[in-house]
Design a protein around this nucleic acid. Structure first.
Length: 588
RNA sequence: GCGCCCGUAGCUCAGUAGGAUAGAGCAACGGACUUCUAAUCCGUAGGUCGCAGGUUCGAAUCCUGCCGGGCGCGCCA
């Protein structure tokens, strides 16, 4: 990397001239305009404070130190104390060779190779298809995970399944209502939407032949053995289901009590809905290392164990028949109930137990990505991890803001209450994975996203996804043209690189040089949108270059050098798109 | 009422973890196809960075207060 070489040269010069100075804040950054050279150095301002010397004086002396260095063709001070450095083109020619050699690993680093981190995202309730906010969280979370991997971290992706709480019961009530012919009043907190009725019909086909309902039959206390069968039923393995349900050679019960059936239906629904979510996410190129179920926590003694931890920390007390977590001690507005007066643990307690489990697994850092409606949970969760004995910073919570879908310039009306919403599957069908992922990551996660469906699916110059992909396809096409002309586009002739001297060529190389910093910065600031922004910029500069310069058909060494430059651009576009989970097509 | 997020060109958004003259795309206007993909490029025009203070060599960026928009404030999840 050119910038790093410059930074080393600057630090070396500073250390020689002012050995006592603290250089931690010294930065070498890409210069803004042409007239400022390639890189700007802020050292004079940093040292001015420490040494109590005017910045211009320091800048002048530093310039003197650097002047003999063959890396620079121009060293000059400017403004209140900036130092502007212009690089010799051959530094960029070396960069070009480096990019071609590193290929798919260009932009990756091992800066975070010692850290093991976990990122939890989506974590939607298993009560229906994923909506567009979940889709955005999926795209952002997965891209962040890829960014962390690119900086060398070991990353685990996890989806927390709230399969235990009341929300699933509301879905069960809603499905039962449809199974009974949709008569009577609809469950008060029930789930609406066409998919609920579809689930009801499916459940009839899957469960009813195996588990006829009778007034007297297998009671819920003995339903446990049957639960094992539910997963098999959901996978369509009926014979497996029969074996599992019967258990150890026993015959299937002739019928099950309605309460038992409800338990089975509930388990089946969770499996069925989860399968839908998993398939949707897989189609979206998002895969999780683990699907962690809340019910696992309840099945073990993890939840009670967590109460003990809170108790020992002195953060648990009783009031009005309930047990409370003293989250206010750690900055939350008020304390929170963890065990209801009914004796039932709250969702929050299970969530604490879940994070206690994460802590026990030894991650250096964990990240939760939450939707906009959950930002109120941040203080209480950070209180919880502190009570568990972790630093507040150990848990980082990112909020992904809402998504406003636009079609024909109008907001697409959605109503969660009425079950009318655009699902991840709908979105993929309409605009495809590439456009959806690119658009979701294009904006800062923190800002509301206006997702223009018409633009996302348009195969036009306005569509940023196509714009970037087109640059990749165009280079591939140039390569095909080169081969047809008898030129090997993969051949590297470093001597020919010297012909890359035009400003547009150095500009492109400068931008390619910034790619590793862009990746590292996007990861460090949790701002994945910097990658699409960078790619649009790179594609734009390549398109301009393409129009200006002929690649194939020039003198052999010129064509060779330009092909090498184009190949480096293609490598970076491909690597960048890969971070976004977007394909890099050879032709369009 | 309290808390979180957002206010930058007509629209959608950047602004590289305080830096130099605030940038793109779209929309508008004017140009470029005997040429490796015109799904592209070149140019013109467009701003009181919501408002007011403060911090310092320097603020769109940090702090405080206000204004405007979104969301949240259950012994639901």
């Amino acid at each position: 990397m050119v910038r790093r070489r410059v930074e080393e040269a600057v630090r070396e010069a500073l250390g020689r001239r002012w050995p006592e100075a603290d250089l931690a804040e010294v930065r070498v950054e890409a210069a803004r305009g042409e007239e400022h050279g390639d890189f700007a150095v802020n050292a004079a301002f940093v040292l001015a404070k420490q040494l109590r010397v005017p910045p211009r004086t320091i800048a002048g002396e530093l310039a003197g130190e650097l002047e003999g260095n063959p890396l620079f063709t121009r060293v000059e001070t400017a403004g209140p104390g900036f130092l502007n450095l212009t690089l010799t083109p051959s530094a960029y020619h070396e960069l070009l060779a480096q990019i071609l050699a590193e290929d798919a690993s260009y932009g990756r680093s091992c800066a975070e190779s010692r850290s093991r981190l976990q990122i939890e995202f989506v974590s939607a309730n298993p009560t229906g298809p994923l909506n567009v906010v979940s889709a955005r969280a999926a795209a952002v979370g997965d891209t962040l995970a890829r960014l962390f991997e690119a900086t060398g971290a070991r990353v685990e992706r996890e989806f927390y399944v709230n399969d235990h709480g009341s929300q699933v019961d509301h879905l069960v009530d809603s499905v039962l209502w449809h199974r009974k012919g949709g008569k009577g009043t609809f469950p008060e907190e029930g789930y609406r939407g066409a998919y609920v009725e579809t689930l009801a019909r499916e459940s009839e086909r899957a469960l009813d032949p195996l588990f006829p309902i009778g007034a007297s039959g297998l009671d819920p206390e003995n339903a446990g053995a049957l639960l094992a069968a539910v997963g098999a039923i959901e996978r369509g393995e009926i014979e497996e289901a029969r074996k599992a349900a019967a258990g150890e050679g026993k015959p299937l019960p002739a019928c099950v009590m309605p309460e038992t059936f409800r338990v089975l239906l509930r388990a089946w629904l969770v499996e069925r809905v989860l399968r839908g979510q998993r398939e949707g996410l897989a189609a979206f190129s998002v895969r999780f290392d683990r699907w962690y179920r809340e019910s696992e926590l309840h099945a073990s003694d993890a939840v009670d164990g967590t109460l003990d931890i809170l108790l020992r920390a002195g953060d648990l007390y009783e009031k009005e028949g309930a047990r409370w977590f003293r989250s206010s001690r750690y900055g939350d507005d008020e304390d929170r109930v963890v065990v209801r007066s009914t004796g039932q643990p709250t969702y929050f307690l299970a969530d604490i137990a879940y994070h206690a489990d994460k802590a026990a697994r030894g991650y250096d850092h964990v990240i939760d990505i939450l939707g906009p409606d959950h930002h109120g949970h941040v203080p209480r969760m950070q209180a919880a991890v502190q009570s568990l004995g972790k630093e507040k910073e150990w848990l980082e919570i990112l909020i992904v803001q809402q998504v406003n879908l636009l079609r024909g310039g109008e907001t697409v009306k959605m109503s969660k209450r009425a079950g009318e919403f655009v699902t991840l599957e709908d979105l993929l069908e309409e605009v495809g994975t590439d456009a959806a992922r690119f658009f979701f990551v294009m904006l800062r996660p923190n800002s509301h996203l206006n997702f223009d469906l018409d633009l996302a699916k348009s195969r036009s110059l306005d569509n940023p996804v196509y714009y970037v992909q087109y640059a990749h396809a165009r280079i591939s096409s140039v390569f095909a043209h080169a081969r047809a002309a008898g030129v090997d586009p993969e051949r590297i002739d470093r001597a020919g690189f010297e012909t890359l001297a035009h400003e547009t060529e150095i500009d492109l190389l400068r931008l390619l040089d910034a790619y590793p910093d862009t990746v590292a910065g996007a990861a460090a600031t949790r701002e994945p949108h910097r990658i699409p922004a960078y790619l649009r910029d790179l594609a734009s500069r390549f398109h301009a270059y393409y129009h200006r310069a002929k690649i194939v058909g020039e003198r052999e060494e010129v064509t060779g050098a330009r092909l090498a430059l184009a190949r480096a651009v293609r490598i970076v576009i491909r690597n960048g798109l890969d971070l976004l989970g977007v394909s890099a097509p050879e032709s369009m």
